[in-house]
């Protein structure tokens, strides 16, 4: 909505509940939101839409930083639908007028937010890696990679409210739970046509073939064209197993058919921000960096001393990965055995 801006106050985050569980992105968003709300000296609220939402889940949002939680619970909202959830959020926004609304860039956030933004005619910035408040104006500064990770762009929504953004999962650590925090819970009900959707959910099928999704792993061991052959990914799986991590890959490795697309890290693959990212035989093209440069610690193993990947690494080994990896595997095994 354009205009009448002073009426719009407060920071909202979209909580996500899948099945019975709140997903951790809900807490990450509250960590972002808390920082913004404190700067603006305003309230932080979380919205939870779904069915059979437990008191425990609601309170957990307060423990992680929310001052208020808006809850809309109805059987028709059990499964995510873009129009059903969109209409509910629109109703809430029209009634309570938040100035800022952020969601995680998950398949839910990336679907419902553009639908919602279109319904209320406001701006939406995708996939932010940084959010801040501008001095003086109090506007939301939304920073995201652009043009394939070559540059960063900061975007504002000066005249429309709410200012909406999705943020990358794992771009911030949740605040520790503070069980003494108290907050207000507002449960809302709407006529059924608000909940209803043209999209009918039929079933969810768990992907058993895919190991732990790489976006959620604390350690990612990634391989590129330097691995020379698909079977050499076995070494990476061994290292990943020893470090409780997952295996990632560059696009070249995926394009060669060495590993499925779900492992691809980068611009046209997944974004990861693990505590540790190990790049083996990856040159570090900007498109690859776009998916991993927010990792806490980056280790690169590459035979080319000028490889771009070293520029974003904390620790680099210039050498042949086929010499290094076996030694790394045996030493990690030793350490593991010692600690047993």
């Amino acid at each position: 909505m354009k205009g009448s801006i002073p009426e719009y106050k407060g920071v909202w985050t979209l909580g996500e509940q899948r099945g019975k569980e709140i997903s951790s992105v809900s807490y990450e968003l509250l960590a972002w939101g808390r920082g913004l709300a404190d700067k603006l000296k305003t309230e932080l609220s979380s919205v939870l839409v779904g069915h059979k939402i437990s008191e425990e889940n609601i309170q957990s949002l307060i423990h992680r930083g929310a001052d208020k939680v808006y809850v809309v619970d109805h059987p028709l909202l059990e499964h995510f639908t873009p129009d059903g959830y969109g209409k509910v959020l629109k109703k809430l926004i029209e009634e309570y007028k938040p100035s800022i609304m952020i969601a995680s860039a998950t398949t839910i956030g990336r679907t419902v937010m553009p639908v919602l933004a279109a319904m209320i005619e406001t701006g939406l910035t995708a996939d932010c890696t940084g959010l801040d408040i501008e001095e003086g104006t109090g506007l939301l500064l939304q920073t995201r990679p652009a043009i394939g990770g070559n540059v960063m762009a900061t975007i504002k929504t000066p005249e429309h409210r709410p200012q909406m953004a999705t943020v990358r999962p794992k771009s911030k650590r949740p605040l520790p739970a503070d069980n003494s925090r108290k907050g207000e819970v507002i449960k809302k009900e709407y006529p059924e046509d608000i909940y209803s959707s043209k999209v009918k959910f039929l079933e969810f099928v768990k992907d058993k073939t895919a190991e732990a999704p790489i976006q959620e792993a604390d350690v990612v061991i990634a391989g590129g064209k330097g691995l020379k052959d698909g079977k050499n990914f076995k070494m990476l799986y061994k290292i990943a197993k020893l470090l409780d991590g997952a295996v990632g890959a560059s696009r070249q490795a995926v394009d060669m058919g060495w590993i499925p697309y779900s492992h691809q890290v980068g611009l046209s693959g997944k974004t990861v921000s693990p505590r540790l990212y190990v790049a083996m035989g990856i040159s570090g093209a900007v498109q690859h960096l776009a998916g991993m440069s927010s990792a806490e610690t980056v280790v690169a193993i590459n035979s080319d001393p000028d490889a771009n990947i070293f520029k974003v690494s904390d620790f680099g080994i210039v050498g042949d990965l086929f010499d290094i990896a076996p030694v790394l595997i045996s030493k990690l095994k030793e350490i593991k055995n010692q600690r047993k």
Binding site: P145, A146, G149, V151, M152, A153, T154, L289, S293, V298, I301, S303, P305, F310, K311, V312, S313, D314, F315, G316, I317, V318, G319, D320, D323, I324
Partner: peptide, 15 residues
């Protein structure tokens, strides 16, 4: 529009 800070304190060792 700005450049992301790519550089980290890189420690390089020979393999």
């Amino acid at each position: 529009i700005f450049y992301p800070k790519l550089s980290r304190q890189t420690k390089i060792v020979s393999g």
